[in-house]
Design a protein around this nucleic acid. Structure first.
Length: 720
DNA sequence: TACTATTTAATTTTT
DNA sequence: TTAAATAGTA
């Protein structure tokens, strides 16, 4: 067996990981250290050299994209398709299991997956049904609570109310929500994982079967696993399985959605024989960028400890720009992007990263003005668009009459005279008789409702029945095509004036072609339609084959994880924005922000710009902030400061400045942004100040009198 | 039922 | 500031 192709391109640590014996292995893989490469080569090694059957291998990732990439690269390396290799997201694999063993999982055969949007609607409806005040019981918070419990593997009956009435109510809402899902055959994302876990936990035979089958478990982004995901893996591995997990504790940025880095330690406790291999050689960034990243992350207390290094060049210094305000910041970024493009570089090689989505606006305006093509990541994906979800709701109702979420979504869309009143009556009936809306509609239409409303409801039911029979023999794409027309959705958007209806129509057509190109698995017991619906829920669709254009990439630092760019801008590095105000007080929160900063810095291959604004308009209010503490955590030797064109105030980086500032603060009791009152000019906000002691002057922006410089010792300002 | 005025709240995101 | 949700009006 010639193993060269699998091993030749690897460094020592990588090779050690790839060829590790069949024992539990934990790979700590720093940013840009070839994490995916190790996973891919490990799979190839097991199959090609160790003679493990592709069926004996389970590879788990967090995103569909990562799963697809891994499969592609494994196949490329092996030079053959590995269709029997189970590789997918936690949710995708759980789904597969549940479809296969729906009876044991106590699910109806045609259970439907709901996304978080559906889930929220369901909760809102639940509150209405129970006549609970949704301002006191905020649907979003209930959703959060339910998902958090499920992520921990907890059912309502496991929860203790801790004699807290608030919590008691939450738990009872969780129970009520479960009941609705149960009745409608609905499964949310967290439920997929929870059920899959319970499926194995409660069916020894099944578990034994899968344990026998999957000897080797490959796990990507291990630091992002939540409790139920870890429990699922743990259960499958048993005592015999060989988990090979890859992660980076320094890149754990999803604690807020249940991810627990602690699983890295848990893993070592659960598998005491586990080999730990660290990948510390970085192939992505210059030494300067790497050193800066290392210095920043070194401020975190809770770390496994790891130092990235490179044998590459030192590279250019990190450029720091102190902008006057967010406009100035955006102008600066765009100026540099212009240079970059003029030098013949690809726009797609440049990324502008920020902490929160709201920051993209100013940048976008600037980019539009400068006529630089760009793409903003995040936002609505294809299958999440309202019109697409409408169409899918029809399809779901065709396949599954009990799906109340879909029923409510489309019962009056397009409008057909079934108003809130009528729906309310149906809900009442459904609640009283614990039956699906569909049954309620039939019952109510024949006795409770008056003529017009009854007719409307009957017409709707008729429509669904008719669509069901008419599409029964069609293939998938014709089914979709038929439904979007027969439902009246197409007509509705056609009548929609303006461009908006136009795009919605296009999206519906796009849905038809998505159905056309969808290849159902012939081995699957589900109907192609059900398969398509699951696919739509599980894979929200990355912009659906958007026409490729070379454009600048805008995204949050979170969504940049896993990506790399020759040129990177980190914008808005101000205390309060990044680290975010809501994380600043909590040490754990702050450490997570710092990891996010680490992720941001390590996205850059060659050139890194860091910018902040002294003044930023946020929520319509001008606010002043200090440069992010993360900036001062980067050693000066790696930083080159670029002065603002107009010097508004002294560079904020220098330590003397900070101390003067602090002294000034203490002495005068004023700070930037401080509200003050002046005897003559009225109320205002401090914009700037200079000097010390008797010479200290402040610039105040008065609400009525405009901006003025005042000598502090004469002005007699009242602080407010 | 549809449109308009008013209120409210405002990280990070994948499945 | 602004987007979204809600309340009020035609």
């Amino acid at each position: 067996m010639d193993v060269t192709p699998i091993l030749e391109s690897l460094n020592d640590a990588q090779r050690q990981a790839v060829t590790a014996p069949a024992e539990p292995t934990l790979v700590i893989a720093g940013a840009g250290s070839g994490k995916t490469r190790v996973l891919v080569h490990r799979a190839a090694w097991l199959i090609d050299v160790e003679g493990v059957s592709p069926q004996g291998l389970l590879a788990v990732t967090f995103t569909n994209k990562a799963a697809a990439e891994m499969r592609g690269r494994i196949e490329a390396l092996l030079g053959m398709p590995v269709s029997h290799l189970w590789i997918g997201t936690f949710h995708g694999l759980a789904h597969r299991l549940l479809r296969r063993h729906w009876r044991e999982a106590k699910l109806p055969q045609n259970f439907q997956i709901i996304d978080s949007d559906d889930q929220l609607r369901l909760i809102k409806r639940l509150l209405k049904n129970l006549e609970i005040d949704d301002s006191r019981w905020v649907p979003k918070e209930i959703q959060w609570f339910i998902n958090a419990q499920k992520d921990e593997g907890l059912r309502p009956q496991h929860l203790d109310d801790e004699r807290d009435s608030n919590r008691r109510q939450m738990i009872s809402l969780y129970a009520a929500y479960e009941e609705i899902c149960e009745r409608g055959g609905l499964v949310d994302f967290a439920e997929l994982l929870l059920r899959a876990h319970e499926l194995w936990r409660d069916n020894a035979d099944l578990l034994a079967h899968y344990r026998r089958r999957f000897q080797h478990l490959l796990v990507d982004e291990f630091q992002d696993t939540n409790a139920i995901q870890y429990a699922w893996l743990r259960l499958l591995a048993g005592d015999e399985g060989v988990p090979f997990v890859v992660g980076d504790d320094d890149q754990s940025i999803y604690r807020w959605r249940g991810a627990r880095v602690e699983h890295i330690h848990q893993f070592q406790r659960d598998f005491p024989s586990a080999k730990v291999i660290k990948l510390e050689q970085n192939y992505r960034s210059t030494a300067t960028i790497l050193n800066a990243a290392n210095a920043v992350i070194a401020n975190n207390a809770e770390r496994m400890g790891k130092n990235l290094w490179t044998d590459g060049a030192k590279g250019e210094a990190i450029k720091l720009y102190a902008a006057y305000n967010e406009r100035d910041e955006s102008d600066f970024v765009i100026g540099r992007l212009r240079d970059w493009i003029e030098q013949g570089n690809l726009r797609a090689d440049a990324a502008v990263l920020y902490r929160s989505n709201a920051q993209s606006r100013v940048l976008e305006e600037g980019l539009i003005n400068a006529a630089i093509p760009y793409r903003v990541y995040g936002g609505l994906r294809f299958f999440e668009r309202a019109e697409i979800k409408d169409a899918l709701a029809y399809l779901r109702l065709i396949s599954h009459r009990d799906d109340d979420a879909s029923f409510e979504r489309i019962v009056n869309r397009p409008t057909r005279g079934i108003g809130a009143r009528t729906v309310e009556i149906m809900r009442g009936y459904a609640r009283a008789n614990s039956c699906p809306m569909w049954r309620a509609a039939g019952a109510v239409a024949s006795d409770e409702l008056a003529g017009r409303a009854a007719n409307a409801v009957l017409a709707f039911m008729n429509l669904i029945e008719r669509m069901t029979t008419e599409t029964a023999r069609l293939d998938l794409q014709d089914q979709v095509d038929h439904v979007i027309h027969a439902s009246g959705l197409v007509d509705m958007f056609r009548n929609d004036k303006g461009e908006r209806g136009e795009t919605k129509l296009e999206n519906l057509m796009e849905l038809v072609s998505a159905a056309k190109s969808f290849a159902p698995d012939p081995a699957e017991e589900m109907s192609p339609l059900d398969e398509f619906l699951s696919h739509a829920a599980l894979e929200a669709g990355e912009g659906q084959a958007e026409a490729w254009e070379d454009c600048v990439q805008l995204m949050t630092m979170h969504s940049a994880k896993g990506l790399e760019f020759p040129l990177v801008f980190l914008c808005g590095l101000e205390d309060g924005l990044f680290p975010h105000q809501r994380s600043i007080a909590d040490p754990n929160g702050l450490e997570e922000e710092r990891r996010l900063c680490y992720v941001g810095i390590t996205r850059a291959k060659q050139t890194l710009y860091v910018t902040y604004a002294e003044q930023r308009r946020l929520y319509g209010m001008d606010s002043f902030s200090q440069p992010s503490r993360f900036i001062s955590e980067i050693p000066d030797e790696y930083v080159e400061e670029i002065r603002p064109r107009v010097q508004v105030s002294r560079p904020l980086r220098s330590k003397t400045r900070t101390s003067i500032k602090t002294a000034a603060d203490a002495e005068m009791g004023v700070r930037l942004g401080q509200r003050v009152r002046h005897g003559k000019f009225g109320d205002g906000v401090i914009l700037n100040y200079e000097g010390q002691g008797a010479h200290a002057r402040v610039e105040v922006n008065f609400e009525t009198a405009g901006t003025k410089w005042l000598v502090l010792s004469y002005a007699n300002l009242d602080l407010m």
